[in-house]
Computed example of a mutant assay.
Amino acid sequence: MTCRSTIAATCLLLSLTLAGCDTSTTSRAAEAPLAGAQIGGPFELVDAQGKTVRWSDFDGKFRMVYFGYAYCPDICPFDVQRMMKGFEQFKKAEPELAAQVQPLFITIDPARDTPKVVGEFTSAFSDDLLGLTGTPDQVAQAAKAFAVYYTKGETSESGGYLMDHSRAAFLMGRKGEPIALLPVEKGPDEVAAELERWVS
């Protein structure tokens, strides 16, 4: 599988200036790497049981969001494994805070990633990881909201194919606002440290 680096849209950040605010919460929000970026937004997908899930269902919780696909032969499984191991480390250190974080895996291959397939994929990593899929239009809407690129590769004679997609794990705030990119490529320790930094 070939994965593009996180697309430029996730790196173009708007600087926020908050005058007269000296609380730690406000300062941390202003310092967030993705503060002000146009990332995230409404979507409607389904979980492993076929139940409708909306972005607004997670209001009040932090969200870890990764876009990938279950049939990915290399990048996605390792990224998700590191992301969830980092979350488990954070959960052991800060169980009350971790209870306020929802990890999400959203497929970019709805043709093959049925609710059952997505459920089996996510359960291999953690019971805390919620897998989501939907119709092609629903998935496209969710990906667009997060500025996630994806496209289907060439189909082989056997009918198999790979998906090319941008590689990023997003940490979103309680109101659905973008906070930071989780460094899944660096390992669980770095993911846990980033959660420790921003989840409060």
Rank of each mutant, 00 (worst) to 15 (best):
K85V: 12
V65E: 03
T151K: 09
P77N: 11
D79A: 15
M84S: 04
A140M: 04
L45N: 03
D128R: 15
T107F: 10
F105A: 05
K116W: 10
Y71C: 12
C72D: 10
F90H: 02
P73K: 01
Y71R: 15
I108C: 14
V80R: 00
E96H: 09
A147L: 13
I106C: 04
V101D: 04
D137E: 15
Y150S: 10
E94H: 14
T133N: 12
L129E: 05
T122L: 03
R82F: 14
D113Y: 06
G160K: 12
G160L: 10
A147F: 08
Q100W: 06
S156N: 02
Q138C: 06
S126E: 10
Q102D: 12
S126I: 03
A98T: 09
K152Q: 14
A98I: 09
Q100C: 09
G153E: 03
L97N: 13
V118K: 11
G153I: 03
K61F: 13
Q138H: 08
F105V: 02
F67G: 06
P103Y: 02
T155D: 00
P73A: 04
V148E: 10
V139R: 00
T151L: 03
A48M: 11
T107I: 07
K61D: 09
S126Q: 06
K144L: 08
G119L: 11
K91W: 02
D109E: 06
P103V: 04
R63M: 04
D59M: 12
E88I: 10
K91G: 04
D59C: 03
P73T: 06
I75Y: 09
A142W: 05
F78R: 11
P115N: 12
L104H: 00
R54I: 00
G160E: 11
S123V: 12
R63A: 07
A99H: 05
E94A: 14
T155I: 14
E96R: 12
Q89A: 14
V118P: 00
T155V: 12
E44K: 14
F105K: 08
P95V: 05
V65H: 00
S126C: 08
D74E: 10
V46G: 06
V46Q: 11
S123Y: 06
F121M: 06
E154D: 12
S56Q: 15
A93Q: 13
D137L: 10
F78D: 14
T107D: 01
M64H: 01
E44T: 15
A142D: 03
A145D: 11
F105S: 11
K92P: 05
C76T: 05
L104G: 04
S126L: 04
D79N: 13
A124Q: 15
A99L: 08
A93F: 11
K85N: 14
A140Y: 07
G131S: 01
K92G: 13
A111P: 07
T122N: 03
T155N: 00
T135Y: 02
G86F: 00
K152N: 12
R82V: 08
A111Y: 15
L45V: 07
A142C: 05
F67Y: 02
D109T: 08
K91T: 13
A70P: 02
P136Q: 00
